[in-house]
Design a protein around this nucleic acid. Sequence first.
DNA 1: GTATATACATAGAACTCCTAGGTGACACAC
DNA 2: GTGTGTCACCTAGGAGTTCTATGTATATAC
Lengths: 114, 114
Amino acid sequence: MADSTIDFLKGTLDLMVLKTLSWAPAHGYGIARWIEQCTDDVLQVEEGSLYPALHKLEERGLIVAEWGITEHNRRAKFYRLTTAGKKQLAASRDYWARFAGAVFKVLETSPAPR
Amino acid sequence: MADSTIDFLKGTLDLMVLKTLSWAPAHGYGIARWIEQCTDDVLQVEEGSLYPALHKLEERGLIVAEWGITEHNRRAKFYRLTTAGKKQLAASRDYWARFAGAVFKVLETSPAPR
DNA sequence: GTATATACATAGAACTCCTAGGTGACACAC
DNA sequence: GTGTGTCACCTAGGAGTTCTATGTATATAC
């Protein structure tokens, strides 16, 4: 959209959500805040992206939800990784490493000898 | 789409095209083959993605096209980076580095002390 | 009682990419 | 000269994500 900012997020949101949940169950709001905090706000998680993504991950059986109470004494939906989710996380993580490595390769390669 | 493959390409196609052109002018077909070769086919550039992307970059004034003849003696459109394109490449490159770094940070961070 | 932060949710727009097709020309074998 | 493979371009349509904008509701602080 804007000239100076480029959107690289595609596909990585799911990955980071799964990763965040691999530590402990968490609710949507908390996942978003954690990712932002962890990356010094380089990655910003919009709620309009996050909740649909969570619902899709749930549909795919990668996470399961359960209502609970937060430390702020509020009602919230806590998500937990399933076995399938753990497998998917491992696969996605590997794939992302290969992908990012490939991009860096292109960015760092010197002109081909010709 | 498929379970095992995830699409992380968003936004990076433009970046890699600009980078490829930073070495020397090239035509679409050649750009695609080079990126694939450079990444051992980890990144595959579909023509249905590439040509629209090239046209958009041209519209934005980041590259310019000129008809020429390839080493195979065929007619082809050679793209060249403009000054604006070089600036955009530098900016996108920096941004990608920050983005990828942030993702890795999330993927590598241990559970938060609690 | 009012404001702020917390927490969830969805509709619609905007965007990118891929699928699936199509065009044409050259090179080479036969 | 005809067929096949490679090169090189292009677009329409659909599928899929993400963002914008908005709405709801509760707990706590003041």
